[in-house]
Amino acid sequence: MTQPSEILLQANAVSIAYGEQLAVKAVTLPVYQHRITSIIGPSGCGKSTLLRSFNRMNDFIDHVSLTGEISFNDQNIYAPDADPVAVRLNIGMVFQKPNPFPKTIYENVAWAPKINGLKDNMDDRVEQALKQAALWDEVKDRLHDSALNLSGGQQQRLCIARALAMNPLVLLMDEPCSALDPVSTARIEDLLFELKEKLTIVIVTHNMQQAARVSDFTAFMENGVLIEYGPTETLFTNPENERTEEYVTGRFG
């Protein structure tokens, strides 16, 4: 399952603090191209904070400081001359709760290309992105309806389509199914397998079965520390660390 692949994104000794409180402690984690990497761990273990640092979404939270570096394509995205906007154009994100803009379905998907001045072939772009997100068939007849009328699962796939419209290289997903029902969850998991042909995915989840089902590599975090990282199969069947074993076998958490 895990053929050799390039490292596309890498956290090197990353520590993140909210004011005085360390939320992520010296984490080093590689992310392989065209693979799904999942980050698991109990609530408050710092997994979402780490994920948000991969496309500098923590910039918007007051008093957050980061040490170490995150390299993307061998460039440090936290370098002084790095542009967070350019970073996010390449590294998209899908959030815990679906957050479509209060606009039409079409406008949601077309939004990112539009602000980037890509005006030609917009219909194709929107169709392409919606198809990739496996939403096209359900919405093709009502592209100009409000996105807020879609069901939760559809909204989340719309958010995925919205993120795909600019063809990012990486898609970060922060517990994308936690607000969805099991059927919608299954659809999104299926979608992940198709998407990894095109891009690289990092997914944070507190659902261990989900991590085991979808990901190629898994990282287990606890109290801000990366306890163990490895191929998903190894981590779930033969963990090296005792804490990992207790967590994946459900003895705590």
Partner: peptide
Amino acid sequence: DGAYSLGAT
């Protein structure tokens, strides 16, 4: 968050 994550200024 949604807008910023799409690379908006």
